[in-house]
Computed example of a mutant assay.
Amino acid sequence: MIKKALALFAVLFLFSGHAAAGFDGYVEVTNNTGYDIYYLYVSHAKSDSWEEDVLDDDILPNGHTVRVNLRNAKSSIFDIRAKDEDGDTYTIWDLDVARHDVVFTLDDMD
């Protein structure tokens, strides 16, 4: 899981420009959907597309939590999308990760 968080850090750093002050923090994502999550995307709320899958080759089993580190981000507002083993997606829009973590449930299914 650590290498996935570092990969996200690298992607966010590349897209954050050379701003001296950016958001440094993390978001914890908990899977309470009843299904394993195979893909997890964390993108700036203003982004036109999803960033790389932060899970890479790992999965987020039901009932487990992963921490995604965010460094030098433009802000603390992110969109977060998960895709489960059946291909169902769960999306949280405009989440302030400085104030809230994510718990995906079936109620969040798109």
Rank of each mutant, 00 (worst) to 15 (best):
A20T: 11
S76F: 01
V29F: 05
S16I: 00
D57A: 14
L95F: 01
K74H: 06
K74F: 02
Y35R: 10
F23N: 00
Y26A: 14
Y35M: 09
G25Y: 06
T33K: 03
E52Q: 14
T30H: 03
M1P: 12
R81I: 08
L12A: 02
S16Y: 00
R99F: 02
M1T: 15
F13L: 11
A19Q: 10
P61N: 12
W50S: 07
L6Q: 14
D108F: 06
S16P: 01
Y26W: 08
F9K: 10
G63P: 07
N32R: 13
Y35C: 03
L12M: 10
I92Y: 06
L6K: 14
R99T: 08
G87T: 08
V97N: 00
S76M: 00
T89G: 04
E28D: 15
V29H: 05
V27C: 07
A73F: 00
Y41E: 05
R71N: 05
G25L: 09
D48A: 13
T105W: 07
A10F: 11
L95A: 07
A10G: 10
V66D: 04
D88C: 11
D101S: 13
N72M: 08
A98Q: 05
L6N: 12
P61L: 11
A21C: 09
V102Q: 02
S16L: 01
V11A: 11
D108T: 08
F78I: 02
V66P: 00
D107E: 15
H18Q: 14
L55G: 06
V66G: 01
V42L: 12
P61Y: 12
G22D: 02
H100N: 09
D108Y: 07
F78Q: 01
E28P: 01
Y35N: 12
A20H: 14
Y41W: 14
V29Q: 05
Y38M: 10
D84F: 06
D24N: 15
A82M: 11
I77Q: 02
D56Y: 13
V27W: 03
L40C: 06
S47G: 07
R99P: 00
Y39W: 10
G17C: 12
V68S: 07
W93L: 12
G22V: 01
V27S: 03
D86F: 15
S75L: 01
I80E: 02
G63L: 08
T65H: 08
S47L: 03
D88K: 14
A98H: 03
H18E: 14
S16V: 00
F78G: 00
V102P: 02
A19E: 11
R81L: 15
D79A: 04
P61K: 15
T89N: 08
R67C: 07
Y39N: 12
D94K: 11
S16G: 15
A7D: 10
F15K: 03
V54I: 13
